[in-house]
Amino acid sequence: MMKGSVLMYQVATVALLALACSLAFAYDPSPLQDFCVAVDKYDFVAFVNGKFCKDPKNVKAEDFFFSGLNIATDTSGQLGTNATNVFVDQLPGLNTLGISIARIDYAPYGVNPPHIHPLGTELLIVLEGTLLASFVTSNQADGENRLFTKVLNAGDVYVFPIGLIHFQMNIGKSKAIALASFNSQNPGVITIANAVFGSEPPINPDILTKAFQVDKNLIEYLQKQFGK
Rank of each mutant, 00 (worst) to 15 (best):
E128Y: 04
L16D: 11
G50P: 02
I125E: 09
A193K: 08
A102S: 14
G80E: 04
V59K: 02
Q33D: 14
I190Q: 12
G98H: 11
P29A: 12
S174F: 02
A176V: 00
T96M: 12
M1R: 07
Q10L: 15
N139K: 15
S181Y: 04
K51T: 06
F52K: 13
N204W: 03
N170A: 00
P205I: 02
L7P: 06
V189K: 08
L147K: 12
A195D: 09
V6G: 05
I192L: 14
A195V: 08
G188A: 08
L69I: 06
G227W: 05
L131R: 04
A180V: 09
L218W: 13
F212R: 08
Q213H: 14
I162R: 15
S100D: 07
A83N: 03
N49T: 09
A20H: 11
P205S: 01
T73A: 12
S174T: 13
K60D: 08
K173W: 06
T75E: 05
L179G: 00
L132Q: 13
C53S: 01
A83E: 04
K210E: 11
G188L: 08
I101Q: 04
T121I: 08
V14T: 08
V157G: 01
M1W: 07
G77R: 10
F182Q: 03
L179Q: 00
G172Y: 02
D43N: 14
Y27N: 15
G50S: 15
G143V: 02
F197I: 06
L32G: 13
K224V: 10
G198L: 05
F212N: 06
Q168F: 00
F25H: 10
K150Y: 03
G80D: 04
S134H: 08
K216L: 15
D63K: 00
Q168C: 00
N82P: 06
A133V: 03
D28E: 14
S76Y: 05
P113H: 12
A18Q: 11
Y158E: 06
L79G: 03
R103I: 02
N145L: 10
L123Y: 14
F65G: 03
P108S: 06
D156I: 07
L179Y: 04
R103N: 01
M169P: 01
G80K: 03
D89E: 15
T13S: 14
D156N: 13
S22G: 04
T84Y: 04
I99R: 08
L23T: 09
L91M: 14
T13E: 12
F52M: 14
K175S: 12
F52S: 15
V196D: 07
G80T: 01
A133R: 01
S76I: 00
A72I: 02
F66W: 01
P202W: 09
L32W: 05
H117Y: 05
F197E: 07
G50W: 11
D215F: 07
P118C: 03
V126D: 00
S174A: 10
Q185Y: 05
N153W: 05
N194L: 10
N170G: 01
N217A: 15
V157C: 01
G143L: 02
G227F: 05
T209M: 13
